[in-house]
């Protein structure tokens, strides 16, 4: 393959006096699972926010290549355009459509791929009805995958925490992403749920042909599924490498023990 799926070059993100991310460079190849770790406040979520267009970076560029050939500059694009190109995410502090049902949450993930215009949806023209039926089937399939098919008519906010996290992943999958960004998907999960999540991430990666960028605090998750790990501390990249290299890295151990 030629160009990597995601290329972050010399990214700087400043909030007033706070430098949340300073000169960060990273590369994710198609089909990889890449981890991003670091202590609280290191700037991990900020990087996701910049990649998905929530913030415009102070400096640097982000290149996305959904198929290895064409390259899109993501900096300056709005979040919805970035999602349409094939980058979707979950949120560290869950952001479901709380008052809507579980099924509606996933169904809404399909909206960006809908071809019919609004009047054909109101008139329920045959081509829209067919499209809608297909999207509902797809949504139900995704719910089945995360094991939530029985709660499809419940309010999303009424689900337990772990299920809400999985529902966020299903909603993101409904957008047909090429690159999936997961922000602490195992947060608040018990060891059993965490194990299932690891399996689940591997499964969806294969089935939907995904590339995954993952922030996680559970070390066992990161070490087990990432091919490559970037370590961030105070907005600065302090190490990168495969899991065993990272585990042996002194700077990483120091950052995690809170020395200095």
């Amino acid at each position: 393959m030629n160009s990597p799926m995601l290329k972050i070059e010399n990214l700087v993100m400043r909030f007033g006096g706070v430098v949340a991310c300073n000169d960060f460079t990273a590369e994710i190849k198609e089909g990889q699972i890449v981890g991003l770790i670091g202590p609280n406040g290191a700037g991990k979520t900020t990087i996701f926010n910049v990649v998905t267009g929530v913030y415009k970076p102070t400096a640097g560029q982000i290149l996305f290549s959904p198929n290895g050939i064409e390259q899109h500059q993501l900096t300056g694009l709005s979040p919805d355009k970035i999602a349409k190109l094939g980058v979707c995410r979950t949120f560290q502090n869950i952001r479901l459509f709380g008052e809507l049902t579980v099924l509606e949450n996933v169904f809404i993930g399909n909206h960006l791929r809908v071809k019919s215009d609004v009047f054909s949806t109101v008139l329920r023209l045959p081509h829209y009805v067919a499209e809608e039926k297909r999207l509902y089937e797809k949504s139900l399939y995704l719910l089945e995958k995360i094991g939530l098919q029985d709660t499809k008519d419940e309010k999303a906010s009424s689900l337990p925490y772990g299920m809400q996290r999985r529902l966020e992943i299903a909603r993101a999958l409904a957008t047909d992403p090429r690159l999936l960004l997961l922000d602490e998907p195992a947060a608040g999960m018990n060891p059993q749920e965490t194990r299932e999540l690891i399996e689940f991430i591997r499964e969806i990666k294969d089935e939907f042909d995904l590339t995954i960028f993952l922030i996680e605090h559970h070390m066992e998750v990161i070490m087990e599924i990432s091919e490559k790990i970037y370590v961030l501390d105070h907005g600065v990249l302090i190490a990168q490498g495969n899991p065993s290299e990272i585990q042996r890295n002194e700077k990483v151990v120091e950052a995690y023990l809170g020395v200095g």
Partner: peptide, 13 residues
Amino acid sequence: EDEVAARAMGINL
């Protein structure tokens, strides 16, 4: 429900 999430799901606000 959530403008940030809606945009992240590709909805043009």
